[in-house]
Structures are given as structure tokens and as C-alpha cells.
Design a protein around this nucleic acid. Structure first.
Lengths: 335, 335
DNA sequence: TTGAAAGCGCTAACAC
DNA sequence: GTGTTAGCGCTTTCAA
């Protein structure tokens, strides 16, 4: 591996001239520039980014913390982030925390040195559980939250969970459904709270009642969404208490479909299912899922743009929550 | 952010003493060690890994190159790699190339400096398309290939594709199926070649014929697996030419199920489907997929162990292909 | 057991 | 427009 010295020697100039010729933004005569470039090519010289980073006090690396790489929404986000980062000369270090706060704190501490110019988190939960993120801000390290956020405290890029849920449930009501249940996720997460809110408001605005019994939640029962519903429908008296289910993500929707079928009921004839996310597989299951499509790739892109803005200006005082729109995708799982 | 100097000053010792106290493997008196540790804690000092890396000529970072983060087999592999790396004090930089060789070459060049102590590739295709990987070896940079490999030229961790396919197809035959087609992937990839080989050998050993017409391949036709099969079954004369399909991955299997249903046929009553990979969703589709489970997490772990071995010994001459076993998962998509 | 000092590869302030 | 030089934060000789 050659260094800038080797290039300088071969080109017959000083190391600083090489540095300048390569950086481009400091004037160097055309003649020396070509000499330098020739030497660079001849040696196949690649600058040592660690030395550069050490000198400049930055690394051109973004840390991306995601809670569960097995969740199929993240691949699209990651691609948006990587593409945007690549276009701006940044690398992405991806850390998967497995929804484990200790893993996350450890990862952040490990990366918190000059390795990382900023963080993108898709993991924020409660104020309580996000002390390490507050700490980052306190230490003046740029942070952008995506998907999950905590109030107005942070720079973040999220989607219009409440409105999109309102629209989805309203659509179900317009299709004639009157007994719509919900399968929800962890209500400590803002996004599930908001989807719940949208669901309730749509019911109320259409003069339907919110029935506690059919507001299912797999995350506080220890049972999977599949088990919860299978169990519910195993009781004869429950089988006609529901004519539709709003699942707060596609995976839960797919589990719900399975549970309903395994209970001897039909989707959507007996029970309609609305999903949320529009994961790739959703169009292939049976029936193809009617769902809410979130702009994952764009979330990724925007989060990088926002983060680079913070890194460049170093102005972390001006927080802003950016809300992107989701849209309803109509397939065949709602009657 | 504090430096080693700040710690030294606070502890009243020299920077080298701090360095030694922290590294652990050079004798320092208990007394000074406690002084140093106290200062470290007080300042919440974290060593600058870039400076350390610059000095030591290594980075403790592994580059992981994957072709398609949307493919659901990769999340599990990534987790295996991350866990193993983390346990050994390494970070993982994940780059997704989108199956685009230019992206990949660019990524490798970008990372090839001292940023990266070694690479794990899940992208190798043909010798032709893998010149940059050969180049890496030539430059003495440790490389491990996973999932996809190229002959015996590289250190790699793969699964027993041929044997597992043989077993899967034999199982179908034992269940009474006699007209088994295959839906294959890119035959430039060794793994699909081997799955094809296992399929053919199972047929031949059971005195069944390999019928070209029912060896489908979506990657050289420009049509998706879904379109290919839908098209095939739209011709009345084809509808009883097949009683089973061996899909060479679960995604293709799911597409096949959809195509068969959309053609008015039943799975598995009319046509059985065997998948490959055992992706998470496979147990939830209808019918739950009988498939071959690959040890993805373990592949990830092993690849890190192998790579760290190469990094530590710097002996890149001794190539070895490591083959892990897959196993058949019986559900309901084969009769 | 400890401190002083050199140097990893690079950039930028300063001098010319 | 170009060269000289100091220094980013760390580890590791060399000397004491």
C-alpha cells in the first residue's frame, strides 16, 4: 500500500502538492496536476482515510442503528440511506441491536469516538430508554431519528401514522365493515400509539364504537398475534364479533390471515384485513394484502440529507420533525 | 471529547503509561493503574480508534459485501456476522451492491485502504466478474466468500446445495410425485448450478426423466417466475404435465404458489411446491411451505471466525471451502 | 515500572 | 503555485 510520500517522490513534488492536487479545491498548476495524477495512477494510490480522518477530526462515516434487521421494512430504508450516503462520499456502518437496549448502548459507546460523524437511529423508544441518545446530543454529536421518534425533542423523519391509519380504517368503513378490530404493536412506541389514535378517530367520526375486546396487542401478552387471534376465534361466540381487522404492520397482517384461515374463516369474505407497510411479500400472499405503503426509501434518503446538514452546519439547536406521507394500496384482503 | 493527554494529566502520569494501563498486556503497577482508571472514568474517556488504527496499521473493521439486502436470507447472515464480530472487538461495515458489479468494485476500492482488515463477500459470481476479488487476494487482503463461491480458489463458507436438493427432490418422489419441474435462478451462480445438479441426479437415480420443458428459469427470460408459470399453465395442454415444482428459493416458491392458484389449480392437491432457504415468512403463507433450511446464522458466524483467522495469521495461501449442512423442513406444500 | 520522543499518513498554516 | 513544517491521538521503542 503506497502513501502520499511515494506519490510525491515519483511525481517529483512535495506531499502537500499531492494533497492539494487530489483535493481539488486549492489551486495547483495544470502541469503539476497531471504529473501527480500520473503517479497516482501508476502506483494505484489510495489515500489512507484513517490518517485523513485523524487529521480532519472526522471520519465520513454515518452510524445507522436499527432494531431488527429481520424486519422487512429495514432493507428498503437501508438502501435509501446507503445510496444517499454514497452520493455524498460517506460510508454507513450498520448496527443491528436486536431490540436490546444494552446492545444499543454498547454499540453507541463503541462508535462514539471520532469513528462516527453522526447517527441515524430507528430505535428510539421512550424518553426513559433513550438516555444514550440524549447524551449524544449533549455531546454535540449529530443525530437523526427515523420511523420511531420521541416527541419534538429530536431531528427526525417519520411518516403520518395517525392520518394514514385514519384513512385506512375509513376505507374499511366505506366498504361496509362495521366491526373492525385492531392488532397493535408495542404502545410504548409513538408510531403504534398514533396508528391506534387514527384507528379510534376513524371509528368515532363514523359513529362506531371502540370495543376494547377486539383491540388486540401481541406485545404485552407474550403471545404472538397468530396465537392471540387463533385463541379468540376458537370461542364460538366470538366468530361473528369481527368483520375486519386493522393490523398495524404487514407481518401482523400475515399472521392474522393465517390465524383466520386456520380458524376455518375466510379472508376477506368473513373477515377483512388491512395491513400497514407494504412489504414486498404482501402482494404475493393469499389474498394479496390491502395495506398502507410507507415511503421507506425516501425516509432513508431524507434522513441522510438531514444528518449531513447537521454535520456540516454543526447547528444542533434547531430541531425539526419531518413527516412524509404514506398511501393506501388497494388489493384484495379488504372486501 | 477527551484525549489520552487529558487522562495522563489528570492521573499525573505520562501518556505512554495511560496507553499501557489501558492495553493491559504490558506491566504497570497496580497503584498507577487505579489512578489511570479513575481518570478514565471521570472523563468518560474513549480512545480515538482512528489514531489507534493509524498507528497500528489496522482498523478492526470487517467489510461485508452483500448483493441484495432485500433478499430475506441476508438479515440472518448479517446477524451471525455482527454477533461474531462484536464478540471479537470488530465492527462491520455493510455494503449492499444491488447485484451491480460497478457498485461493488467502487465499494471495494473505497474500502480497500486501511479502513478494512478483511472482506466477507456474498456476491462472487463468475471468475470473469470477480476480478476485483482476485485483486484483493493478490494485494494480500484477507477475503472470505459466503453463500456464493467460485471453485476452490477462495476461502469460503457455503452449504451443501447439491446434496440438500437431492434430498428435497427425493422426498418429493417418495411422496409419489412423478412429474417434478424446477424453477431455477441464475445458472452463472454455482449455488443454482448445484441445486440443479441435485435435482437432476435425484430424478435420474429414481428412473425419472429430466424434461427440459419444465425446467423453468426466470433469470434468462426476463420474465418473473410468476409470469413464467402463469403463462405456462394458461395453455390447457400443460395443466397436467406437472405434479410438483422444486423452487430453488423460497421467494420463487411463493411466486409459484401464487401463479398456480391464479391459474385455478391447488397447492398441493394439484401441484406440490418445495422451497429452499426457509425464510421467516415461509411458515405463514398458504399452504405453509415445505422447504430446505439453510444455517444462515451459522454461516455468518463461521465466516467471521475464518476471516479473523486469516487476519491474525496473515497466511492467505491455505484456501479451504467449508460446507455446512442444510436440512429439510416438512410443512404442507408437498402432498 | 515509568517518561520522553518518534512516527503512523495526512492536511493546512505559513513562508517563499 | 509550491515546499516546509507542525500536529491530529495513539503506541512503542529507547533510556532511565
Amino acid at each position: 500500500m503506497y502513501t502520499i510520500k511515494d506519490v510525491a517522490k515519483l511525481a517529483g513534488v512535495s506531499t502537500s502538492t499531492v494533497s492539494r492536487a487530489l483535493s481539488g479545491n486549492i489551486p495547483v498548476s495544470e502541469e503539476t496536476k497531471t504529473k501527480v495524477m500520473k503517479a497516482v495512477k501508476e502506483l494505484n494510490y489510495k489515500p489512507n482515510l484513517m490518517a485523513k480522518g485523524l487529521k480532519e477530526g472526522k471520519s465520513n462515516v454515518i452510524g445507522l442503528i436499527i432494531p431488527d434487521i429481520q424486519n422487512p421494512i429495514f432493507p428498503s430504508i437501508v438502501r435509501g440511506i446507503e445510496d444517499a450516503a454514497r452520493n455524498n462520499g460517506f460510508n454507513v456502518v450498520l448496527i443491528n441491536t436486536d431490540e436490546n437496549i444494552d446492545n444499543e448502548v454498547a454499540a453507541v459507546n463503541m462508535l462514539k469516538n471520532r469513528w462516527i460523524d453522526g447517527f441515524i437511529f430507528a430505535t428510539a423508544t421512550s424518553t426513559e430508554n433513550s438516555k444514550h441518545i440524549y447524551q449524544l446530543i449533549k455531546e454535540n454529536i449529530p443525530v437523526v431519528l427515523i420511523i420511531r421518534n420521541i416527541g419534538e425533542d429530536f431531528n427526525s423523519v417519520v411518516t403520518n401514522n395517525c392520518e394514514a391509519s385514519y384513512e385506512a380504517v375509513s376505507y374499511m368503513i366505506n366498504r361496509g365493515l362495521r366491526k373492525i378490530g385492531i392488532v397493535n404493536g408495542d404502545l410504548n412506541l409513538n408510531l403504534y400509539m398514533e396508528r391506534f389514535k387514527g384507528y379510534r378517530e376513524a371509528l368515532v367520526d363514523n359513529e362506531l364504537e371502540v370495543v376494547d375486546e377486539i383491540c388486540f396487542n401481541s406485545s404485552n401478552s407474550g403471545l404472538s398475534c397468530y396465537e392471540l387471534l387463533k385463541d379468540y376465534f376458537s370461542k364460538e361466540k366470538n366468530r361473528n364479533k369481527i368483520d375486519g381487522i386493522f393490523a398495524t404492520n404487514d407481518y401482523k397482517a400475515i399472521e392474522a390471515v393465517r390465524a383466520i384461515k386456520d380458524s376455518g374463516l375466510k379472508v376477506p369474505e368473513d373477515i377483512s384485513i388491512m395491513g400497514f407497510d407494504d412489504v414486498k411479500i404482501s402482494s404475493f400472499i393469499d389474498p394479496p394484502l390491502t395495506t398502507v405503503s410507507q415511503p421507506f426509501y425516501e425516509i432513508g434518503e431524507r434522513s441522510v440529507e438531514r444528518l449531513l446538514g447537521l454535520i456540516n452546519t454543526k447547528d444542533l439547536t434547531n430541531k425539526k420533525v419531518e413527516v412524509l406521507d404514506s398511501k393506501l394500496i388497494i388489493r384484495n384482503s379488504v372486501i
